[in-house]
Write a protein that binds this DNA or RNA. Structure first.
Lengths: 119, 119
DNA sequence: ACATTACGTGACCAGCCGGTAACGTATTGA
DNA sequence: TCAATACGTTACCGGCTGGTCACGTAATGT
C-alpha cells in the first residue's frame, strides 16, 4: 500500500480501454487472443500493451496453459484504492454509502444477473 | 453520468499532484494562492493548470470573493465512480467493503449533529 | 493614485502515451 | 515434420501532458 503502487494503479485505471479490459475480465478469465478480439478497432499490439500495463500494476495476472495464456482479474489494488478513498472522504458521503449497501443487499436477494456497464 | 464525464474524472484523478490538491481541499476551502503555496516545488502556473483540470472535471468549484478566489472540493464525481465500482466489483471483495460500510454507518449514527466542513 | 496583492495566461518545450506496421517465438495437431 | 495457432516484441510516430518563463489583469489599502 505504498504511494508508488497506488499511483501505478491510478495510472493504469486512467485509460478507458484498460478499464474495458477489466470489465471483460470481471466475467471470468480470458485468454489473450480472446481479449484482443474484443477490441477489433485496435491492433493486437495495442491491446497487449494495455494488458502489460495492467499486469505491471498487478490488476491482471497471467498464467500459462500450454500455448494458451489465461488472464485473470485481480481486484485487490482497486479495492485498496476504493477503501482508502471511502475512508478519506467519509464525511462527504456517509448517507450515500448507506444507499450503496442497501442496493447490494437488494441485489443479492433478487438474482445474480450481472449488468455490464462500462466506466 | 455519461462516459465522457466519468472518463474526464478518471483522467483528472490519475495525477498525484491533483489528488494532493483534493486532499488539501478535503480539510476545507482554500484560496488559490494558498493552494499554490502548498506546492513550493512547482511553479504557480503548473498548479493552476492542475486546478483548471480539476475544475473542468467538476471536482473543484471556485467562487469569487472580492479579489480572492475560493476553491472548494466537490466529491460528487468521486462518489459516483466509487459507487459504480463497488457495485461492479461487488463479488470480489464482499467482506472487506461491508466492514467499511458498517463503519460509516456507525459513525453517521453516532455524530448526526456534527456537520461536515462547509463545501 | 498607485503599489501591492491575488489571480490568470501566452508561448514554448521535453517526455510520456497510445497507437501502427512488421517481424519473431513457441506450442500444438495432423 | 511443419503449418497453423497463440502470443510476444522491435522500431517508430503524432499528440497529449506536465512543466517552465515571462507577462497581463483586477481588486484593495492607504
Amino acid at each position: 500500500m505504498n504511494k508508488h503502487d497506488s499511483d501505478e494503479t491510478w495510472k493504469a485505471l486512467s485509460d478507458p480501454t484498460r478499464r474495458a479490459i477489466l470489465d471483460l475480465l470481471r466475467d471470468g478469465p480470458r485468454q489473450t487472443t480472446a481479449i484482443v478480439e474484443q477490441f477489433p478497432e485496435l491492433s493486437r499490439f495495442a491491446v497487449m500493451k494495455h494488458l502489460n500495463v495492467l499486469r505491471s500494476a498487478k490488476l491482471v495476472t497471467t498464467r500459462s496453459e500450454g500455448r494458451v495464456r489465461v488472464n485473470s482479474l485481480n481486484a485487490a489494488p482497486i479495492r485498496d484504492i476504493i477503501e482508502r478513498w471511502i475512508n478519506k472522504y467519509e464525511a462527504y458521503w456517509s448517507n450515500t454509502l448507506l444507499r450503496v449497501r442497501d442496493d447490494a443487499e437488494q441485489k443479492s436477494q433478487r438474482s445474480t444477473s450481472k449488468k455490464r456497464n462500462s466506466v
